[in-house]
């Protein structure tokens, strides 16, 4: 959590490998390796997934085609056999239920003409398909109505396990009613200035960021 401009989205994008950002100081160690040395796709193959604040619309690339390519390249990089068409479709149907995705959206062009809520659901659906070890949700709750929020949060909750972790970037306590965090970190001016249990989020909601900034 943290006020506008505190660097939350920057952190999320840096972790996923966005090339517009140059890391001038510091290190990121992920599973014992230097994350900053890796290309975005290599990070994905190692289990990092960024759910975008603004998912990109890509006309001419079908949702399914894209996802199948992404999954199979990830599997290949991890020494697994490619998933056949039938197995892939079975998995799609199963995971689509998690976020109540319409089958019609699957065959459409990637995010093209999707509503804000549908785009966010598609992000969580992709996450469910790719089963990351580290899921980063960059303001996934922004622009969602309460029903969509519940569905998206429900999807995340079903994916949580002892083998994975999530970084959830948000402005609001509201999301944390549905996705209950283990730890809350507060960022300001590019630094984590306070960490605490889930109750910290409630206290922030009540007292504002000025309170922690002091």
């Amino acid at each position: 959590m943290g006020p506008n401009g505190s660097g939350k989205s920057t952190l999320a994008n840096v972790l996923a490998g966005r090339e517009e950002y140059e890391v001038t100081e510091g290190t990121v160690t992920y599973q014992g390796a230097d994350l900053l040395e890796l290309s975005p796709e290599e990070r994905a193959w190692k289990g990092i997934f960024l759910a975008f604040q603004y998912p990109v619309e890509i006309p001419g690339v079908s949702n399914m085609n894209f996802l199948r390519t992404a999954m199979n390249e990830t599997r290949k990089a991890n020494g697994l056999a490619e998933l056949g068409g039938k197995d892939f479709l079975t998995l799609v149907r199963e995971r689509a239920k998690l976020v109540e995705m319409d089958a019609d959206l699957m065959n459409r062009n990637l995010n093209v003409g999707f509503s804000g809520g549908e785009k966010k659901r598609n992000e969580i659906f992709q996450m469910a398909m790719l089963e990351p070890k580290l899921g980063i949700l960059d303001e996934t709750d922004s622009g969602l109505d309460i029903d969509a929020l519940r569905i998206v949060a429900g999807g995340v909750n079903k994916l949580r396990s002892k083998d994975n972790a999530f970084i959830v970037v948000t402005h609001y306590q509201r999301l944390l009613d549905y996705i209950v965090p283990d730890v809350v970190h507060v960022m300001a001016d590019g630094r984590i200035i306070k960490s605490g249990p889930k109750e910290l989020a409630l206290e922030l909601e009540e007292r504002g960021y000025d309170w922690v900034k002091g």
Binding site: G17, E41, V61, N65, F66, A70, E73, Q126, L130
Partner: peptide, 20 residues
């Protein structure tokens, strides 16, 4: 970047976007 962040290699992502 969106395609690559999902695990599509850069070369393949370029092909996909070019075709698209």
């Amino acid at each position: 970047f969106y395609l690559r962040s999902r695990g599509v290699s850069e070369a393949e992502a370029r092909r996909m976007l070019s075709h698209a």
